[in-house]
């Protein structure tokens, strides 16, 4: 069994980013980059499958040379090898899904695992688009994944009002939600081993794909900031204010 899993390089999710004064983008100076937390969950799931069923786990990323670091983190967790598709262009979800499709055709995995969304663009689109253009089934927002004889997957999906249970024939695309698992920390030997694992680099321009954007980001703005209000002394004061001042109860 072979699993392709994504590792997008994103700004540190716990840092509050700022918009550049001229609105041309996000101010990135001094900001750390990490693996998209949802991709980290996908990587963990791939490695758990590998530990149970024997599988090869290929960690892929699309982006700048710096994304080597994010692939290495996936390899340190237990991935076997990496593929980095090199581009400095900002790609939209449609374009990334086309790049991933080309990698799927090259690698023939049984399963593609991805995060349900990246915490920078917050699109929540790429996995679904990839599944459609491959004509594969999808299971998004997975909270439980169970493989049956390496040919099927039973997936529990977190949706509005409860849980959706589906069964998919492999190959398929599964996107991870928060509660699928808790990603491990890479061990020191894991980190050492990852340094020797192979990362293949492919120039996007050599792939012969039309990745021209269908979504173009123009100006960035800052949302209206909320002002901190007042600290009230006690519960009676709070309730009185909610009734008489805010008029919400």
């Amino acid at each position: 069994m072979k699993i392709l899993v994504t590792a997008k390089r994103v700004t540190d999710p716990d840092v509050k980013i700022k918009v550049k004064p001229d609105g041309s983008g996000i101010a990135t100076e001094g900001i750390d980059y990490k693996v998209n937390p949802f991709d980290e969950i996908a990587i963990e799931e791939a490695i758990r499958i590998k530990e149970k069923n024997k599988a090869e786990v290929v960690v892929v990323s699309v982006g700048s040379k710096e994304a080597t670091k994010e692939i290495r983190s996936g390899l340190a967790m237990g991935g076997d090898r990496g593929i980095l598709v090199l581009t400095d262009d900002p790609l939209d979800a449609n374009a990334v899904s086309k790049v991933l499709k080309a990698l799927v055709e090259k690698e023939n995995p049984d399963l593609v695992l991805m995060g349900k969304q990246a915490v920078d663009g917050d699109n929540n689109q790429t996995g679904q688009m990839l599944a459609e253009i491959l004509d594969w089934p999808q299971a998004c927002f997975a909270s439980v994944v169970e493989l049956v004889d390496d040919s099927k997957a039973k997936v529990t999906r977190e949706v509005d009002g409860g849980f959706d249970h589906v069964e998919l024939d492999l190959p398929a695309v599964i996107t991870a939600d928060l509660r699928l698992n808790e990603p491990r920390y890479a061990s020191l030997p894991g980190i050492m081993k990852a340094k020797r694992k192979k990362i293949e680099e492919i120039e996007l321009s050599s792939m012969g794909l039309d990745t021209s954007p269908k979504v173009v980001w123009h100006k960035f703005g800052t949302p209206a900031e909320r002002q901190a209000g007042e600290i009230v002394a006690d519960v009676p004061t709070l309730v009185a204010k909610l009734r008489d001042e805010a008029k919400v109860i």
Binding site: A93, N94, N123, Q125, T126, Q128, E132, F141, R157
Partner: peptide, 23 residues
């Protein structure tokens, strides 16, 4: 924007080779 449409609409977009804006 709901759990259902977040699952569904990107697939529709890909079928129509359309760009998509979420939320």
């Amino acid at each position: 924007a709901s759990a259902m449409t977040k699952d569904l609409m990107p697939r529709v977009a890909a079928k129509l080779d359309a760009g998509m804006a979420s939320d």
